[in-house]
Write a protein that binds this DNA or RNA. Structure first.
Lengths: 146, 146
DNA sequence: GTAAGTGCAAAAATTTTGCACAGGC
DNA sequence: GCCTGTGCAAAATTTTTGCACTTAC
């Protein structure tokens, strides 16, 4: 699980993109996230600023879009409208999030996955992708009243 | 299935809102939709224009937001970013949509529904809502190449 | 009559794009 | 050195808001 060489370099190059500072930095930021792995472009930009990187917001959008196209990153449209980006670690998963504190947890469920395929089949669709979002109160927030 | 009196009136009044032309018209438009029940605010606005109604886009947004708060309408964030609104007929359902032609079909699945509850419970969340979107090619589009 | 509702235009918020300059290979 | 990539500012898009006027009740 630990790699000595900057894997970012390979991933970016494999995507057919030049290895540039903004791209490496943004990928590193996405990899660094442990608590909250789902970032808006704006948030990525602010982290870059806080690290004294001279990278424009437009570049953040461009890079994230390229990463998405390359399959390095997944874009989600959670409630609220704006996009959040998450590093794609290869494992598919769905999301459950707290409507109060914004906490996001991940899960997978084989039964749901297989039902989705059956549903698509029965409606004669060729499934390419899916998104399942559960919304509610997380353990912490459901005890604390508003 | 057919009602002689404008049910819109009741629904709007029950929501604690005054019965105004924009509100009635917008509700009627949402009810009229059969082929595509999921409309953006912009699309609702254009339909109003085509019916020679003098209603501003801002009002469309305001009314749709009020309807959402009142539970008359459901707002979705499909891929692509902008919100679509759908009349809430009381029946919960999920969505499968064609990434090529934009067609949207609806479905429900008890197994998925119950799994969702179990997942939320196992993660100690109090579930309030959920959204399941399947994306793919509809029967028509999967045969026709790009 | 009065408070809620509306139209319009202006503002906000988010994302995209044009262009001259910079940097990877 | 060439071509891709980037920063910046301007534009495009979507949604919200302020304010004077209108309408429901």
């Amino acid at each position: 699980m630990y790699r000595s060489l900057p894997l970012e370099t390979h991933d970016i190059r494999n995507a057919g993109l030049k290895v540039t500072t903004p791209r490496v930095k943004i990928l590193q930021i996405l990899e660094k996230q442990t608590a909250e792995r789902h970032l808006t472009a704006e948030k990525v930009y602010k982290i870059l600023l806080s690290e004294d990187e001279d990278i424009g917001l437009a570049t953040v959008y461009r890079v994230l879009t390229q990463f998405e196209a390359a399959g390095l990153v997944t874009r989600h449209h959670f409630e609220g409208g704006n996009s959040v980006f998450e590093l794609d670690r290869g494992d598919h998963h769905d999301h459950i999030m707290c409507i109060k504190c914004g906490k996001v947890d991940e899960f997978t469920d084989d039964i749901i996955e297989s039902r989705q395929k059956q549903i698509a089949q029965s409606l004669d669709y060729e499934l390419t992708d899916h998104a399942l979002y559960l919304y509610g109160f997380c353990p912490k927030c459901k005890t604390t009243p508003a």
